[in-house]
């Protein structure tokens, strides 16, 4: 009753609220939706500075060009999938880490370790690359150390070696993100009912048995959701790190789809073609996301997005 009378009384207030939201709506439209309309440019011969009405409609010309540049795109696709696959394999590490960390008995030590391993998450990839450069370049700290230890071979060069590029980037990713990614799992472990452990202890379960039969099953749902999200983002493996670490020696292995789009679009100013590539990428991503979501709904009974 109260609600109804309120509703009819303060109508101007309702309208006022909508009006107050209007600037934000316009803002979001300008900054998020107008770029979305930019997708249409893939079907035009876009020239900078030309009015939209004067652009020439070319239909699927740029999508047909994809075949023409097939080798480059295929390479970018292979790199993207490869790096994605590696990152999925290594997504086992954060939960493992969380388990090990909860098994540390000294609370202070636990907190300290957690604080310190989360730190790299908060620095930019540029700083990471600066650190790597000073440590791993041919006259960097690691090589100096190896040299003074009597290693006389060729200097180790991971920053310019295409063969180890994937491994190196994956290792860096682990270094930077393990602490951060394990926070969710730490919380999941903290959320496991302590009574389960007590009951298992009474039944004579050892620590390892309790980890295997209580902690691991407790983490599995979280792990699966995050893994599924990762599958949905299969084609987005991160962008800045590959720009930062890209050099002529590693380019063939580190040029992922996003970097390719960037190179074609901003670099050579082939805007329409770059947009066509990114449209295809988005379409595949959306299909993947829905596929994964329906898979999750069918197996877990709830969707993830």
């Amino acid at each position: 009753m109260l609600k109804i009378s309120k509703k009819s009384k303060i109508k101007p207030r309702r309208l006022k609220l909508t009006l107050m939201a209007l600037p934000f709506v316009i803002f979001i439209f300008l900054f998020c939706y107008v770029p979305l309309m930019g997708w249409a440019l893939a079907f035009f011969d876009y020239r900078p500075g030309l009015a939209f009405s004067r652009l020439k409609f070319v239909g699927f010309k740029y999508f047909e060009l994809l075949g023409y540049y097939g080798d480059d795109i295929l390479n970018a696709l292979v790199n993207t999938l490869g790096l994605s696959g590696l990152s999925m394999l290594t997504s086992l590490i954060p939960p493992l880490f969380a388990i090990l960390l909860t098994e540390v008995r000294c609370t202070r030590l636990k907190k300290g370790i957690q604080t310190m391993i989360t730190l790299p998450h908060f620095v930019s990839w540029i700083i990471v690359s600066a650190l790597c450069f000073s440590l791993f370049s041919t006259n960097g700290m690691v090589n100096q150390l190896l040299h003074s230890l009597g290693y006389a071979g060729k200097p180790v060069n991971v920053l310019g070696n295409a063969d180890t590029a994937w491994t190196f980037m994956t290792a860096l990713d682990i270094w930077k993100e393990v602490g951060w990614n394990s926070i969710v799992y730490l919380a999941a472990i903290a959320g496991i009912d302590e009574e389960l452990h007590d009951a298992a202890r009474v039944d004579g379960a050892s620590r390892f048995q309790r980890i295997c039969h209580i902690t691991v099953p407790g983490l599995t749902p979280t792990f699966i959701v995050l893994l599924l999200l990762k599958v949905g983002n299969l084609l987005s493996v991160g962008f800045e790190k590959y720009i930062v670490f890209n050099n002529s020696l590693m380019a063939s292995r580190l040029e992922v789809l996003d970097v390719y789009t960037y190179r074609i679009g901003i670099g050579t100013q082939d805007y329409s073609f770059a947009i066509a590539v990114s449209i295809l990428k988005s379409v595949v991503s959306i299909i993947l996301l829905f596929a994964v979501n329906s898979l999750a709904r069918r197996t877990r009974g709830e969707s993830i997005i």
Binding site: T18, P35, L36, M37
Partner: peptide
């Protein structure tokens, strides 16, 4: 009690999942 509340909220949320991408955003 705001008019069009759901609509405006959804309008905002969608931007988390769909974005124009690098090049269109740059051009705009």
């Amino acid at each position: 009690e705001m008019y069009f509340r759901k609509l405006i909220y959804r309008f905002t949320i969608i931007t988390m999942y769909v974005s124009g991408g690098l090049i269109p955003t740059y051009l705009v």
